[in-house]
Computed example of a mutant assay.
Amino acid sequence: MTATVPEPGLNQAEDRHDTAERLLRSSEELSFDPATQVDWETPLDRSYHGMSPEWSSLYGTAYWDELTEDERRELTRQESASVASTGIWFEMILQQLVLRDFYAKDPTDPAFQWALTEIADECRHSIMFARGSEKLGAPAYIPKRSVVTLGRLCAMTYSGEAAYASILVAEEVLDVMQRDWMRDERVVPFVRTINNIHVVEESRHMKFAREETRERLKGAGRLRRQYQALTVAAAAYFIVTSMWNEQIYANAGLDTQRALREARANEHHKSQLRCSCAGLMEFLSSCGLLTRPALWFYRRANLI
């Protein structure tokens, strides 16, 4: 009897094919249209927060204790819009990374079709976040010019595991905080709907990003892992530190300098960020992407 020896890489290719097909089926069965499923018509009810108060950068500080309830709610609305604006900025980078990765590849491959589905999702999410921020009464919170420039560089140069692990970083951090906000009845209902849509659809994106990160790292040597770990950590630092724009305090009517001082020293907020990244750090460690140099960036961003 002759044994059949599987071709090298065949099982991995089949697994990737099956994962992409499952994600496509899931997208067909459970996707949303924010244009019709978010309540854009009802005027903003200012008796609600824009995010769970516990996620505010000032929650737990002396300044927070001095604020009126109206001031706290306004601050969380500005903070929610700032996080959403950072999400839009990174989603535009994400789309470029995925398009470059699948450029001129087999369009009959389910992975190719899933990549286009993910890009379509991200386009809808960005419009949804933009409309949500406008309804919250917030301006466009664009990251600092230097960070925008670095984002352009990332979009042009990141590839393989660096691209997909960076995508995962942004999505994981948002996922944890938005799961809290979407269940919190203190948060304005239309924001809860936005968060629910994003959580459901991004869960598929995170699954794909994890699988692609693992796949691209197969056979990678120590030097490559060290370098890519550093690029991913740098991306994580700039994404997370851009989420709370410095202008939110002035727009909420607060003393910007005092707010910045207390926010930077706020151990409660740092703890919230670390908790949001526990699963992410475990995944990066399992992939050999949590190196000593990379840890410096994660600690600076209060992610570990």
Rank of each mutant, 00 (worst) to 15 (best):
M1H: 10
P6Y: 12
N11S: 08
E14H: 11
A20F: 09
L23D: 01
S26C: 05
E28Y: 12
P34E: 13
P34Y: 06
Q37F: 01
P43F: 03
L44V: 15
H49E: 13
G50Y: 11
P53T: 00
E54W: 06
S57H: 15
E69P: 00
Q78Y: 08
E79M: 07
V83P: 08
V83W: 02
R100I: 03
D101P: 08
D101G: 14
Y103V: 14
D109K: 11
E118F: 10
R124H: 06
G132Y: 01
S133H: 13
P139Y: 07
P143M: 13
P143Y: 07
V148R: 13
V148N: 09
G151N: 04
G151E: 05
G151A: 08
R152S: 12
L153E: 03
I167E: 11
A170T: 05
L174Y: 14
V176A: 15
V176R: 15
V176F: 04
V176N: 06
W181T: 01
V187P: 13
V191N: 13
R192Y: 01
N196H: 15
I197M: 05
H198N: 12
S203I: 02
A209Q: 03
R210L: 03
R216T: 07
L223T: 04
R224M: 00
Q226C: 06
Y227A: 06
Q228E: 11
L230S: 09
T231C: 03
A234H: 08
A235F: 06
Q247C: 00
I248S: 12
A250R: 15
L254C: 04
R261A: 06
R261M: 05
H268R: 10
Q272S: 11
A278H: 10
G279P: 14
F283M: 08
F283C: 04
L284N: 00
R292W: 05
P293Y: 05
R299S: 10
A301S: 12
